[in-house]
Design a protein around this nucleic acid. Structure first.
Lengths: 267, 267
DNA sequence: TTGCTCCTCACGTCACGTGAGGTGGC
DNA sequence: TTGCTCCTCACGTCACGTGAGGTGGC
């Protein structure tokens, strides 16, 4: 016994809870090398840290205990190599998924911050940094049908094109004129995926804000057009509309906040 | 209803199982915007994809549904920003943990491969690439006490020094002479952490293998010394002993495989 | 009538966490 | 005697998964 560690000591060294160690023992995944014949105390050998740490690594990677156990039963170098290599795709996927989650949260956070710092009443000219995005296929709006059909179509296409829909979604109009003409009917939807294949260039943009439900921009189109005329600004390139605050962080749909921007040059 | 999606359609678009959607509805985390008064069918609005995707992201990051729900109840930009920022450390930790797991598996796989390709009977001179490691404090071996005390001390120190014990562990002797003198008593233990602060230099090494339990090298020390004399090799720098196959992948402790190597120059 | 989609409710599952009640050596 | 560590066993929990039995429109 002197050469062995009590369950508490072993738990401290390994960082694995005693309840977990007892559970792993119970299902036959990992057992102490010794048991006190009198009181049934568990005693672990220090060398067992190697095994238990390795099991922890596998379970951290969401390999089920049954799976780990199955391999452990055989325990040859070949079978372990098989386990590792057969799970490498899964592990890769796990990692890229987590990375994506991280960057989705990051993107979302930046949008919310943009929204909190903005004065929705003002129209401004600002230098915006470059941004990546994935552009969906052209939309088809049917009269008096609202956003439903085109949005569903975008979702369907997105699935086929493997566009990641977890990033914030926005609408793109080919020009300020198109936006003026039908503000609720963008020619494309896009996803703000930072791994996207399209780049919105850095530069000077006219930026405006509107509160309202998806597709509702109130008098913003007219105010932006008036502002451009007043300041002698020529718009070029597409106009982007994205939601800084939507149903994720605002209760009342009427209070959703969108940001609209289009590249400009002084005339 | 025409503007809404059935639970199946919504499940297909979102990639979230219908059972999960029903469960989330049941606990009040995420509910369809509409219910058929007749048959109680759930109908989701396409815009709800934004919310459900976001919830998926949070739950993928192991934020509990209770936690997500708590924030969702309030739903202001400030509270959401709080949620994201208060969890960023946790998310960072999650990512680095997974990265570590990945690289631990990678390291382990390479060791196993080394072991499978090796001929344990041969001693060779090979060019070994550079390798990173973390060196533990000097060991203190007590007479007739075996590996227990020094190994436990290493684990204790490792906890304090935040050495990652999940990477394979090896022993370091200051010279071939020390190894000859007491093969089972390395002057240091080390962890093969690729983020380690010590570097084993690339170069020509004399490499040998032995089967046996931790600390048991049989006649390998003598064979290596004889090989060096025969071939006119001068050893320099420390001698490393690591386990390529240990209790993780071999049943019988007597069959554990260790690799021993030390830098050499032709005299 | 036959499929088909949806419903609720109950029970199962996976990997533990949490007491409750009891033991054994200083 | 009093702590302290350990034990077993039972039950709880979290986030679903899986039928069983039933409904409603084509």
């Amino acid at each position: 016994m002197k050469e062995h560690l009590s369950i508490k000591k072993f738990s401290e060294f390994s960082g694995i809870e005693t309840s977990t160690l007892r559970y792993w023992d119970g299902i036959g995944l990992f057992s102490p090398t010794m048991r006190d014949a009198e009181n049934n105390y568990r005693y672990y050998s220090p060398a067992q840290l190697v095994s238990v740490n390795f099991i922890k690594v596998l379970s951290d990677l969401h390999i089920s205990l049954k799976n780990i156990n199955g391999i452990d039963r055989v325990r040859t170098p070949e079978s372990l190599l098989n386990l590792i290599e057969s799970h490498e795709n899964q592990l890769d996927a796990e990692l890229t998924k987590l990375h994506a989650c991280y960057s989705i949260l990051h993107t979302r956070r930046n949008l919310i911050k943009r929204g909190m710092n903005a004065d929705p009443a003002q129209i401004t000219v600002e230098r915006l940094p470059e941004e990546q995005l994935v552009l969906g296929p052209p939309t088809h709006f049917v009269k008096n049908e609202g956003l439903y059909e085109p949005l569903v179509q975008f979702f369907q296409e997105a699935k086929k094109l493997r566009i990641n829909l977890k990033y914030p979604i926005g609408g793109l109009h080919h020009s300020l004129e198109n936006f003026l003409h039908a503000p609720g009917e963008p020619e494309h939807f896009f996803s703000l995926d930072p791994l996207g294949n399209e780049t919105r260039k850095a530069g000077e943009y006219m930026v405006g804000y509107a509160r309202g439900y998806y597709g509702q921009f109130g008098d913003l189109p007219d105010r932006m057009a008036a502002f451009a005329r007043e300041k002698g600004l020529a718009c070029h390139g597409p106009l982007y509309a994205i939601f800084l605050q939507d149903e994720i962080c605002v209760e009342d749909p009427v209070q959703y906040l969108s940001q609209v921007f289009v590249a400009v040059k002084a005339l």
